[in-house]
Write a protein that binds this DNA or RNA. Structure first.
Lengths: 239, 239
DNA sequence: TCAAAAGTGTTTTTTTTACACCCATGG
DNA sequence: CCATGGGTGTAAAAAAAACACTTTTGA
């Protein structure tokens, strides 16, 4: 059992599945390749891992380059390594899921990257196995968001409970009782009520809230159980 | 943005965190390296990914070589890619968690590998970042087993409810009410009652059960919620 | 003044938990 | 014949769900 015999070396990349929420529905950020091969085709944002960095570092770098944003929520999804996944050259890719406040991003220049937000269920064909990555990321998001408050990452700094409910409803494609929803969210003590209201979507106006970052960080793993029947949504998940 | 410029190529490996249950406590299978460098030190079972295979294929192959067993429960845990993780040469490693019936394994020859079962909370120092891998695997096991019936994978073909309860109690280091436990397990309809009893641990004897593979495969993702306070165990988890 | 959305209150239903009790049997 | 674990029954407590009702205010 000689381990350090001559071994094949291969290319090592990262790809980012970037989710955003525009107030209406869940979106996915894609770029149109401006270079050969496959110029013009849509793909996830990605790049190669450099000698001096970890995959996490590479994903952060790629995200920073694209959005100009630091401190984005990001987690490793899965590593894709089929020998046939990249038709150009054998490449292993670690996929990361990122959640960003779409508002913040809007201010940034995205022209250099030809990046476009697509509705999560209505995006163009993707290169290589990127569709598989996106599907898996969607599953995991739905799974995890039923247990942890991570969807808060998709909202702007201040937001209302009805807005948050709308986000959950769009992610789970289901309607929730507003009374029960609001109580459940507030019972986590993860939100702080602000003094002002959002008057855009109703005459009465809804109070703004912000994340209590301290409690959020300490209690991120708290179970929320927002979704009526977790069996349904867990049906195809891989965590 | 030239993507396919010259890129560094690196070594690509897999490591397996193999859990077993001997009826008393959770165990971890480790090997003592029989080759340089670090000869004599303990490590996870691992190997390099070959040109023609995926990381999953490589992990299965490694597992087959070590245990002689096919069809072992296995899932990708995380990819470790810090530039400094392997002190010999830069290597990226995909870690896999495997759950095996320790009885089945016992029949196999393990002499070639110098493989030894260690109590999960009392194992020797490990090479590289293998301790980190093990810790993460433990966390994920505890997290996932609270929601899915995967601990069944650790038991032999037939087992009793009290044996299963003992397994849960050892994984969560907590005591469960036997009545509630048995009802909760049985309510999943994942088990089939057999005609014979295990008379070893009591005079009355406890009925054997086996997994209803059909329902198990279809309902693996069913939420079980075995653990009294999920907050506690989720506290440090990364899923 | 009233429609529409925010937010509160209350009842019903379901699930979980605690714990008492019966069962079977080997020593 | 009784101690020991296996297994069932059931009431209390807690959580979740359903839904009625009150509040605010711009048009």
């Amino acid at each position: 059992m000689k381990r350090y015999s001559q071994q094949s070396r291969l290319l090592f990349a990262v790809d980012c599945i970037i989710f955003g929420f525009d107030g209406q529905e869940l979106k996915l950020l894609l770029i149109q390749r401006g270079f050969e091969p496959f110029k013009g085709q849509w793909s996830l944002v990605g790049g190669f891992v450099q000698e001096s960095e970890s995959a996490e570092d590479a994903a952060s770098r790629v995200l920073k380059d694209l959005t100009g944003l630091d401190g984005i929520y990001m987690e490793q999804l899965h590593t894709f390594s089929s020998p046939s996944r990249d038709t150009v050259e054998r490449t292993v890719s670690v996929a990361y899921t990122a959640l960003i406040d779409i508002q913040k991003y809007k201010q940034q220049l995205n022209e250099d990257f030809h990046a476009v937000w697509f509705p999560i269920n209505h995006h163009p064909e993707l290169i290589f196995d990127h569709k598989q990555m996106v599907d898996q990321a969607k599953e995991k998001l739905r799974y995890k968001a039923a247990l942890h408050p991570l969807l808060l990452e998709l909202l702007p700094g201040k937001f209302t409970i009805p807005q948050l409910q709308h986000l959950y409803e769009s992610v789970y494609n289901a309607a929730f009782d507003k009374g029960n929803f609001s109580r459940k969210i507030l019972s986590t003590k993860l939100l702080v009520k602000l003094a002002d209201k959002d008057k855009l979507s109703s005459k009465k106006g809804a109070f703004y809230y912000k994340i209590d970052r301290k409690k959020y960080n300490a209690n991120f793993h708290a179970f929320l159980n927002f979704v009526p029947d977790p069996h349904v949504l867990a049906a195809t998940n891989g965590v």
